[in-house]
């Protein structure tokens, strides 16, 4: 399914090897089978009994950090903060449930910049 290759580097970590994925891959990453999320994101569920839940939580935790935290720089940059926040909300909605992801795959307009 995925063209985004993942490989174990010497120290056991996964390393990206420059792949690209077709549009809509976020939804497919959330689908069943071997997904990017499974390959790259780690969750240690202590008493979770739902692997799909673990995967969603792991992706949510990644998005919470990579889009909202970290070194944030503004100024004369070409970074569009508003768009990122907007899409962040979209991604969160998408990740909230796989069922929801299926709906959004059918209506990608939800990601459009004009949506709030």
């Amino acid at each position: 399914m995925t063209e985004f290759k993942s490989q174990d580097s010497g120290d056991g970590r996964r390393a990206a090897s420059g792949g690209t994925m077709p549009p809509g891959s976020l939804a497919s990453a959330l689908g069943s089978g071997e997904s990017i999320a499974q390959k790259t994101l780690r969750t240690s569920a202590l008493n979770a009994d739902d692997p799909a839940l673990e995967k969603r939580v792991s992706l949510l935790d990644l998005l919470d950090r990579i889009l909202q935290k970290g070194v944030v720089i503004q100024g004369d940059l070409t970074l569009s903060v508003a768009d990122i926040d907007l899409v962040y909300v979209g991604l969160r909605v998408l990740l909230t449930s796989v069922e929801q992801a299926e709906k959004m795959r059918a209506s990608p307009v939800l990601f459009g910049a004009s949506e709030k």
Binding site: F4, R13, R14, A16, T20, S25, I36, I66, T78
Partner: peptide, 19 residues
């Protein structure tokens, strides 16, 4: 600027930083 709607760009960023 990378399209933030594409999970691969997000994961590529994350994987580079984690490496």
């Amino acid at each position: 600027a990378p399209d933030v709607r594409e999970l691969p760009a997000i994961l590529a960023h994350e994987l580079a930083v984690e490496t």
